[in-house]
Nucleic acid binder design. Structure first.
Length: 265
DNA sequence: CATTATGTTCTTGG
DNA sequence: CCCAAGAACATAAT
């Protein structure tokens, strides 16, 4: 699930339920989500610390503690950050439970454990972990995105998914942007005409702003995302055409064959 | 049993 | 070096 808008939602959860609270209890129920740090060192470093104001870069959630290490969380495909009350029943995928002053909890819940939680004692550690990330997609803006794409010779979708080009776009957002801009996912990133570049630059803030507000890529039926899981195959909200499905850049890709014509080659 | 899943990384090969 | 494709990671659902 988590792309930029989802992680932005987790940032708000952390801000609203965690900032200013102390981690009084800390349960690592599955150390498979702890990365580059032992359970022992993790607990010793985090328990007793107060949570600061969280930030986000791309799909990374950056959670500083007062005078302590910074936690870096990445949610993979199935992770979430869930607020809970201390008595709420634990779910199987609740891997780490932060028990906070005031009685509440924050739970790192993740089915597949593809990513997890890193501990960054210094600013240098944070820099190392985020080194491969391009500018945040919500901060770089439409023209910034288009400028970066122009330096890429590969496919459009592949470039949009590359976090070093721009950080935060995932499979759903990439398809949504390309549908909005009426660009086929296999088009070359550096081969766009001026009107095409304008369409893509305009689509970025429109899609991102709405998705960030919703805390997810909203499955609205006037968006592609609302149609892609349609059991009847789904139709383009603009033209009513049957949506095309395929594999582009290794990912399930949905597009409208009329709005987004395939490149010649 | 095979296939699929909203992510990233590593390997291989052009 | 750039880029694409495939496998791997770990787990559940269809």
């Amino acid at each position: 699930m988590p792309e930029l808008p989802d992680v932005e939602g987790f940032r708000r959860v952390l801000r609203d339920h965690g900032t200013g609270r102390r981690v009084e209890r800390l349960t690592v129920r599955d150390d498979g989500v702890l990365r580059e740090v032992s359970t022992r060192r993790f607990r010793r470093a985090v328990r007793g610390r107060c949570l600061g104001t969280p930030e986000r870069h791309g799909k990374w959630l950056i959670a500083p503690t007062d005078a302590g290490p910074t936690l870096l969380l990445h949610f993979g495909m199935t992770g979430r950050l869930v607020p809970a009350a201390a008595g709420d029943p634990l779910e199987r995928a609740d891997r780490v439970v932060f028990g906070l002053s005031g009685g509440g909890e924050l739970r790192f819940r993740d089915q597949r454990k593809l990513r997890g939680i890193w501990l960054a004692p210094t600013a240098g550690d944070i820099a190392r972990l985020l080194a491969g990330q391009g500018p945040d997609a919500a901060a770089v803006g439409g023209p910034g995105l288009v400028r970066r794409l122009a330096r890429r010779r590969g496919g459009l979708k592949s470039a949009l998914l590359d976090q070093s080009v721009v950080a935060g776009l995932g499979n759903l957002l990439a398809d949504e942007l390309l549908w909005r801009a009426r660009l086929h996912p296999a088009r070359r990133a550096d081969g766009l005409t001026a009107p095409e570049r304008r369409r893509l630059a305009g689509a970025l803030p429109r899609v991102l702003d709405a998705a960030v507000a919703a805390g997810r890529v909203p499955p609205r039926d006037d968006w592609l995302t609302g149609r892609r899981d349609d059991p009847d195959g789904g139709r383009c909200p603009r033209t009513g055409d049957r949506l095309a499905r395929g594999r582009v850049a290794g990912r399930t890709t949905v597009w409208c064959p009329r709005c987004q014509p395939a490149p010649d080659r």
